[in-house]
Simulated assay, not measured.
Amino acid sequence: MREVLQSKIHKAYVTQADLGYIGSITIDEELLELVDLWPGQKVLIVSNTSGARLETYVIKGERGSGEICVNGAAAHLVKKGDEIIIISFTFSDSPVTPKQILVNEKNQFVQFL
């Protein structure tokens, strides 16, 4: 059994960072569906802006909003306007074809990678 890449949202931009919220990352529902992420699923957040890396879980955001909100303590590491990569992994006994997308500066789907 190996831990392998399941999905990735590449070059997303943080639209809000909310220290007062209790943990997690809120992601536009449309993007969640494109990469098969579930609310409550663990994700790795990598900031292309600061180099910070952190783990949290997904909250479903409003469909079509482009929302990417980093909540709770993670907002100390990732700020509004930062460019990030959102990654999930899965365990598998065989190779997995990950669902990977590129988004634009408004967090709208551009293409599959």
Rank of each mutant, 00 (worst) to 15 (best):
R2K: 15
E3L: 11
V4E: 05
L5Y: 00
Q6K: 13
Q6R: 15
Q6D: 15
S7L: 08
S7I: 04
S7D: 05
K8M: 07
K8G: 00
K8D: 02
I9K: 04
H10F: 00
K11D: 15
A12Y: 03
A12G: 06
Y13A: 09
V14M: 07
T15I: 03
T15Q: 03
Q16H: 12
D18W: 07
L19N: 10
L19W: 06
G20N: 14
G20I: 09
G20T: 15
Y21G: 02
G23L: 08
S24R: 02
S24Y: 08
S24K: 09
I25C: 04
I25P: 01
T26N: 10
T26L: 06
I27T: 08
E29H: 11
L31I: 12
L31G: 06
L31A: 05
L31H: 07
L31S: 06
V35S: 03
V35Y: 00
D36R: 14
W38Q: 14
P39I: 04
P39L: 03
P39N: 08
G40L: 06
Q41Y: 05
K42H: 08
K42W: 02
K42G: 04
V43K: 00
L44V: 11
I45S: 04
V46A: 05
S47I: 01
N48R: 13
N48S: 12
T49H: 01
S50R: 06
S50W: 00
G51C: 00
A52K: 01
R53Q: 01
L54S: 07
E55H: 11
V58G: 09
V58P: 06
V58I: 15
I59Q: 09
I59A: 07
K60E: 12
E62L: 10
R63P: 15
G64Y: 01
G64Q: 02
G64S: 05
S65Y: 05
S65R: 08
S65K: 03
I68S: 07
I68T: 06
C69K: 12
G72M: 02
A73P: 09
A74R: 03
A74F: 02
A75K: 01
A75Y: 02
A75L: 01
H76D: 13
H76Y: 11
H76N: 14
L77C: 06
V78P: 01
V78M: 06
V78D: 01
K79Y: 08
G81Q: 04
G81L: 01
G81S: 06
D82M: 03
I84R: 00
I84M: 02
I86T: 08
I86M: 07
I86R: 04
I87Y: 00
I87L: 07
I87K: 00
S88F: 01
F89Y: 12
T90L: 15
S92E: 13
S94F: 14
P95T: 02
V96T: 03
T97R: 15
T97L: 11
P98M: 04
K99P: 14
Q100K: 14
I101G: 10
L102Q: 12
L102E: 11
L102F: 12
V103H: 09
V103F: 02
V103P: 15
N104I: 07
N104Y: 06
E105L: 10
E105V: 13
E105M: 12
E105S: 10
K106R: 11
N107K: 08
N107F: 11
Q108T: 15
Q108C: 15
V110N: 08
V110M: 14
V110Q: 13
Q111S: 11
F112L: 12
L113I: 13
